[in-house]
Simulated assay, not measured.
Amino acid sequence: MRLLTIPQHPIASFGSTGVTMQLLPQAGGTSVHVAHLAPGGTLGRHPAVRRQLFVVVAGRGEVQVDDDPPQVVGPGTLVVWEPGEVHQTWATTDLTAVIVETSEEIDLSD
Score class of each variant (00 low, 15 high):
residue 55 V to H: 15
residue 93 T to F: 06
residue 27 A to H: 10
residue 29 G to F: 10
residue 66 D to W: 05
residue 77 T to Y: 14
residue 73 V to G: 10
residue 50 R to N: 06
residue 20 T to A: 14
residue 28 G to Y: 09
residue 76 G to F: 12
residue 95 L to C: 09
residue 110 D to T: 04
residue 94 D to Y: 06
residue 83 P to M: 03
residue 8 Q to K: 13
residue 52 Q to G: 15
residue 37 L to T: 00
residue 2 R to C: 05
residue 103 S to I: 00
residue 15 G to R: 01
residue 84 G to R: 01
residue 59 G to I: 01
residue 110 D to G: 14
residue 59 G to T: 07
residue 13 S to F: 15
residue 110 D to E: 15
residue 72 V to P: 03
residue 55 V to P: 02
residue 100 V to W: 10
residue 81 W to H: 07
residue 41 G to F: 12
residue 75 P to W: 09
residue 65 V to L: 08
residue 105 E to V: 03
residue 84 G to K: 00
residue 65 V to N: 02
residue 34 V to E: 10
residue 36 H to W: 08
residue 9 H to P: 06
residue 96 T to N: 04
residue 22 Q to C: 11
residue 98 V to C: 08
residue 57 V to Q: 10
residue 81 W to R: 01
residue 19 V to H: 12
residue 5 T to Y: 08
residue 27 A to T: 01
residue 42 T to V: 11
residue 97 A to M: 08
residue 24 L to Y: 12
residue 19 V to P: 02
residue 65 V to M: 13
residue 45 R to T: 04
residue 38 A to D: 06
residue 40 G to H: 09
residue 79 V to I: 12
residue 62 E to G: 05
residue 98 V to M: 15
residue 6 I to P: 10
residue 22 Q to G: 08
residue 75 P to S: 15
residue 57 V to E: 13
residue 61 G to Y: 00
residue 59 G to Y: 08
residue 107 D to Y: 04
residue 97 A to Q: 02
residue 101 E to M: 14
residue 104 E to N: 04
residue 76 G to N: 07
residue 62 E to K: 00
residue 87 H to E: 11
residue 79 V to S: 09
residue 3 L to Y: 08
residue 94 D to I: 00
residue 107 D to P: 13
residue 84 G to M: 04
residue 106 I to Q: 09
residue 34 V to F: 13
residue 22 Q to K: 08
residue 15 G to D: 07
residue 8 Q to M: 10
residue 107 D to S: 15
residue 42 T to G: 09
residue 32 V to R: 01
